[in-house]
């Protein structure tokens, strides 16, 4: 992600590999990673001449915020949940669930 943010234009997988600091990441690894990130909506891809070019979709601050929230969520469900008191605990109700509840209790 950092590599993509730093560059001002979309990059191909090979270019990402080249710009990665230090180590030799395998081409395949980077490729898989970028594909997954695209699925999650973090990057967009554009095919130019049969080569995929990737650009970031979310900006840095949003991303770090998201990561922090994930971490917090993990910590909460892991250690903190039993040590704190809250209004409700679920972090994973879907919209359908909520609608179901609304209907059931006439809210």
């Amino acid at each position: 992600m950092c590599v993509l943010w730093d560059s001002d234009k979309p990059l191909s997988i090979q270019e990402v590999c080249d710009r990665l600091p230090e180590h030799n990441w395998a081409y395949k690894t980077v490729g898989t990673l970028l594909t997954r990130m695209e699925k999650k909506g973090a990057v967009s891809s554009e095919k130019i001449n049969r080569v995929n070019f990737y650009a970031p979709l979310i900006d840095k601050s949003d991303y770090t915020a998201e990561q922090t929230k994930n971490l917090i969520s993990k910590l909460y469900n892991g250690s903190v949940r039993d040590l704190a008191v809250s209004l409700f605990k679920s972090k994973s109700l879907t919209k359908d669930d909520i609608n179901e509840l609304k209907e059931m209790f006439d809210l």
Partner: peptide
Amino acid sequence: LAFAEINTTGKPLVAQFSSDK
């Protein structure tokens, strides 16, 4: 419910959601 709506996820985490619901 209002607070629950703040953080709905599109995909349910199967292990947890049923018990929370």
